[in-house]
């Protein structure tokens, strides 16, 4: 009796969870475990049977002499810090502005959200054109020094070029999350604050922000992990150049595995990357979770 019940339960579980689990295993779990194995081998990515077990050599190599990997890590950290700040600042301000009673509200929301619909590769190419041709033409007409810089041609402009496009692309999405949260703040609380004599900014700071902390958590988490994993934009906008000065960590891994044909070393880097992303994500969620309050 109880055995039959148990089998029934099993069948039900596997019918409902099974398909998803199988897909997840094939697409995520198995490749991940394989990657874990390959990170200890020397392999060119072609014939599976030619992967040679070399133990910790890949990791030793990365930690002992792989300047480019560490340079790209430094670049990625800097990029993440800058973009997370700017994106969230901008998205929050946009969210505040577009949750007020404006006539063009819906139109503007669409406009700011639109860049997010275009894929990163395409955006990169569009902006590459804007930076190298558009900015140049504006510079020729106006003579403004900002537009006369060799955009994307120097490490500095390459970095800020990436930041601009990344912020432009992701601020719209974060804005939508902020709008949803701001609209969800109970009216009575802000009204009470106003009656008590609080100015607009005081209300924002003391009432709105504490109440939308869950949204802040989500947005910070999304922007951090997106910025840290940035790849498509990097590939199409600067190709990591000039030189390797704007090479993100993800791009460095890609180049190691698919350009240099060192799959083993590439997956070893990817494993380090995975650990880093998890660490950052966990700490950051844990930190902001503590700040969340309930109304």
């Amino acid at each position: 009796m109880s055995l039959r019940k148990k089998t029934g339960e099993w069948i039900r579980q596997s019918v409902f969870v099974g398909p998803g689990l199988i897909a997840f295993s094939i697409i995520v779990l198995v490749p991940f475990l394989l990657g874990f194995y390959y990170s200890f081998t020397e392999w060119n990515g072609l014939d599976l049977n030619k992967a040679k077990w070399i133990g910790m050599d890949n990791l030793n190599r990365i930690f002992a002499n792989d300047e480019k990997f560490w340079a790209s890590l430094a670049f990625t950290l800097k990029f993440t810090a800058v973009t997370v700040l700017i994106t969230n600042g901008l998205a929050f301000v946009l969210g505040l502005a577009l949750s007020r009673a404006l006539k063009t509200r819906n139109f503007l929301r669409t406009v700011f959200f639109l860049p997010n619909v275009i894929g990163g590769i395409l955006l990169g190419y569009i902006w590459q054109f804007i930076f190298t041709k558009g900015f140049k033409t504006i510079g020729e007409f106006t003579g403004w020094p900002l537009f006369e810089l060799p955009w994307l041609g120097t490490p500095g402009t390459g970095f800020w070029g990436l930041v601009i496009v990344f912020v432009w692309q992701s601020a719209g999405y974060m804005m939508v999350i902020y709008i949803a949260a701001i609209v969800g703040v109970p009216k009575d609380l802000s009204e009470a604050a106003v009656i008590d004599g609080a100015s607009y900014w005081q209300t924002v700071r003391k009432v709105t922000i504490p109440l939308i902390m869950p949204a802040v958590t989500v947005c910070l988490f999304l922007t951090t992990s997106n910025a840290f994993k940035m790849f498509d934009l990097n590939l199409s906008l600067t190709k990591g150049g000039p030189g390797t000065s704007t090479q993100s960590l993800a791009y460095n891994i890609y180049a190691e595995a698919l350009v240099n044909n060192r799959y083993g070393l590439g997956t070893a880097k990817a494993m380090i990357f995975f650990v880093l992303v998890s660490l950052i994500a966990i700490t950051q969620v844990w930190l902001t979770k503590r700040k969340e309050v309930e109304a």
């Binding site: 030189g243 000065s245 240099n260 044909n261």
Partner: peptide, 19 residues
Amino acid sequence: PDGVIQGWGAAMQEYQGGS
């Protein structure tokens, strides 16, 4: 082998940029 010329290309870009 693959990877060498990519490294060269990156170095030349840096030289061209004067860094």
